[in-house]
């Protein structure tokens, strides 16, 4: 088994054992529940505001999972071992990001379907919302790797991660919310996919550079 596969497999089982997507999903549904409570149940209003708010809720739910992503590896000494692998740290970081996407990102994208319907989104848009969120959470995971790696040594770094990462969430949020709102769906979807690919390519490189410094 390659180091990439071994890391991916281990992260999947650790994340699963740690509750998997349960907490972020609960967070996501809790946040979307508050939307009609805050805005009132009027259908027309919800149909406009609901889908973008689903994107924001998904972004925040992803964000909440980042704090311990590398901090645990730094604190228990796992990072030292990762640096002795024949696989580059970039690949191991990518494996962790991929596991995060599988365990948290994809379930969030699927959970967006009932949430969108509850928020009165047009039913014909729901597949596009789910697909765009599947890509969007990949972008969030890639960007999140960098934030998590930069703050791995900071105690209670959750708020700091948010401050660092949120401005970089702007592009996927813009394109993703456009898909969810039914505006220029085709090109917006392509642009979300671009964000996801870019984040998946650059995120692990920057995160690995930061982790090497953390191990010093």
């Amino acid at each position: 088994m390659s180091a990439f596969a071994a890391t991916f497999r281990r992260e999947l089982s650790l994340m699963w054992a740690g509750g998997g997507a349960l907490t972020p999903l609960g967070y996501f549904f809790g946040a979307t529940l508050l939307v009609p409570l805050a805005m009132g149940p009027e259908r027309a209003l919800l149909a406009v505001a609901g889908p973008p708010l689903i994107w924001i809720a998904a972004a925040l739910a992803m964000l909440a999972t980042l704090e311990r992503l590398f901090q645990a590896d730094l604190e228990d000494g796992s990072l030292d071992q990762m640096l002795l692998s024949p696989a580059p740290l970039e690949a191991l970081t990518l494996a962790k990001g991929l596991a995060l996407w599988c365990v948290v990102g994809l379930p969030l994208a699927l959970a967006a379907a009932p949430a969108a319907i509850a928020l009165q989104a047009p039913v014909e848009l729901v597949p596009a919302i789910v697909a765009s969120l599947a890509l969007g959470t990949a972008a969030f995971a890639g960007i999140g790797l960098v934030g998590a790696a930069l703050t791995a040594g900071v105690r209670r770094g959750g708020v700091l991660i948010a401050l660092i990462v949120l401005p970089f969430f702007a592009p996927p949020i813009i394109f993703g919310a456009a898909v969810a709102g039914g505006e220029q769906v085709g090109s917006a979807m392509a642009l979300v996919a671009g964000c996801a690919l870019g984040a998946a390519a650059l995120g692990p490189i920057a995160a690995a550079a930061a982790l090497r410094l953390q191990a010093e």
Partner: peptide, 17 residues
Amino acid sequence: KGGASVRSHLRYWAGLF
């Protein structure tokens, strides 16, 4: 990792190295 079994640690390290 507290949640992982002894054997799964060995399996992971074998893959890692």
